[in-house]
Design a protein around this nucleic acid. Structure first.
Lengths: 190, 190
DNA sequence: GCTTAAATACGAGACTTCTAGTATTTATAG
DNA sequence: CTATAAATACTAGAAGTCTCGTATTTAAGC
């Protein structure tokens, strides 16, 4: 047991909650560290004692505020499982979470460390989930075995990310069906 | 003919060229206006006389440096036309142009004006090109007529954008074939 | 047990640094 | 005479650092 005052766990949670809420609520512009500190009722230095940068706080807030993975059912109909999962992710992206993701992607451009952490802590776990399901589909003979997993996953989830980041069109939960329908014939076992 | 000294056209080009080169060459971090001014051998105020913001310069530099649209052949084989076009775009995204696009997307997050201009001046023209080709395919009976164009285009080009912006995997020109192959069965006229 | 010292965290806010964008002044081209 | 360009000082705002006083917890001395 280390000596000294212990970390204020409630402060940590207040910081992450405040960050998540501020970024999700405030329109595009940046949320400053001072605002986060004020909203979390915490001194700025308390933030910098535990996080190396503003962006690191954002990333933690994202992971903290989106803990529960979007569910991925496992029925005997793989196609509708994917459709359901995609629909869930679409909903997630249309919530405040979407704004935080956008901001993190933006910041990632200037900070490869954050880019990597984003992939490791947010992107990859979800990716692995879909990937495993795809693999299972192959073993069950529902999916062609000669496909490039990465390309298929990018084709299914890419349109959603594209619309989130470019903003040319909204992405509705109902689009999940269209997307999966468009891609499925190319990957299903004939 | 306007009175007074005329605009220095060479300076304008030096600014755009310098911007394009600096963003493309320098690793992730931001290129500052001062650096651009120095590299273009121009006073900072000369930049702000003609562009409203740093990001506006970036956007002009992108359009200026990527003038020639990636070619879109029109043979009797629509599938391979799409594949060829996608291959071209992949190559473009792997060049310095890719970095400028990433930076612009990042900046767009905090500036909806730029986001809109980016879509209008870079995204939409290319989108329209692909869209027209898709429409033509329908008229020729090669493509199903009941598909959602937007979703199909997002599925074809989404993976590329995804890999550019997330950086989880590189996108090679050879992937163009895999992507189009994956999507095509879902849209081709049976 | 009780007191005290050591170690660490927190709050508050001044301070530093960096960069976008503005303003001013002087020179130069049409 | 008029508008642009160069040079450079200036303003504003935000990230991140530093300092100081205070609070909290463990360990040592008695």
């Amino acid at each position: 047991m280390p000596r000294g005052r212990t970390r204020d766990e409630e402060a940590r949670i207040r910081i992450l909650d405040a960050t998540f809420e501020l970024v999700g609520a405030n329109s595009p512009g940046k949320v400053t560290i001072n605002e986060i500190a004020a909203a979390g009722e915490v001194a700025k230095q308390t933030i910098y004692r535990w996080w190396p940068s503003r962006t690191a706080v954002l990333l933690d807030a994202l992971v903290h505020g989106t803990m529960k993975a979007t569910p991925f059912k496992e029925t005997d109909n793989l196609q509708s499982d994917f459709e359901g999962h995609l629909r869930g992710v679409i909903r997630l992206f249309n919530s405040p979470t979407g704004k935080i993701i956008r901001e993190l992607i933006a910041e990632s451009h200037a900070d490869e460390t954050i880019a990597e952490e984003f992939r490791n802590r947010f992107w990859q776990p979800r990716r692995d989930l879909s990937q495993a399901r795809l693999q299972r589909g192959i073993e069950l003979g529902q999916i062609r075995s000669d496909i490039d997993h990465e390309v298929v996953l990018d084709a299914i989830y890419g349109p959603l990310w594209l619309r989130l980041l470019i903003g040319h069109l909204p992405m509705k939960p109902a689009d999940a069906r269209r997307i999966v329908d468009a891609v499925w014939p190319g990957i299903a076992q004939p």
